[in-house]
Amino acid sequence: MVDVRDFHCDYENKWCPGCGNFPILEALKQGLADQRLVPEDVLMISGIGQAGKTPHFLKCNFFHGLHGRALPLATGAYAANSELPILVSMGDGDCYGEGGNHFMAAIRRNPDMTLLIHDNRVYGLTKGQPSPTSERGFVTKIQPMGVRSDPLNPAALALSQGAGFVARAYCGHKEQLAGLIGQAMDYRGVSVIDIMQVCVSYNTVNTYDWYKKRVYDINEQGHDTGDLSAAMALAFAGGDRIATGLFYKKDRASFADRVPGLAESPLAARSYDPARVQALLDQA
């Protein structure tokens, strides 16, 4: 039996006490254990930021790459071995800012991987600058008059670009998040989970209290996950209530399904066949 403790890692954790990343990490371990995966079979790819550090605190294989570039890195690993269970851990700046183009491209390409965006609506690691999801008016040291731009809407963006698995979660609701991670891993294609994460050090607006008053689980209310307009409406809903849960799910051909032969045998698993390549050279 796999146990959440199997994913425990001795490496010293470097997040601030009380950070919303801790419950996300716990939910992640739960989700992986529920999947009956062992650490040796899990690959996490991450970008740079507090969220990007996640794989250091989880027992697994990992590649902690560059700021904004986790998705192409993961896509390459997936192209080489499409059987790997891949999780991609990114911050909101990482995924929607520096890596925004890759986010859109990943949705189009649809490699089979689970995107975990730790959306704390701030740049944590670089000490409190606004992120693409910070509210207009969000005050920081370098925006003393408040952020001038409007925030990006992750769920709406993902839905509008045709993503086949779009969810929003809240770090404080671990059970729900663990369940969503499990469903996302079962889904064949890009699955997007925008996780509203509390940053106790640099975001004094979107606190645990702030979220607690607002979040509710749409999947407990009979939301139809096959209804794109309903999902869009949830993504755009303003006011004091914030919907969480699986917004939308639809089957799409994964990247591997689109490349002849790739779904049957991963590139990395194929044996070297000099005669075949020689024949190809002889035809040149």
Partner: peptide
């Protein structure tokens, strides 16, 4: 694979090599 930009291209290549090809 045609990447979305050269940054993606090189990172994909690194990922693929890491995963064994």
């Amino acid at each position: 694979e045609q990447a979305e930009d050269e940054i993606a291209a090189v990172n994909m290549v690194i990922g693929a090599s890491f995963a064994g090809v």
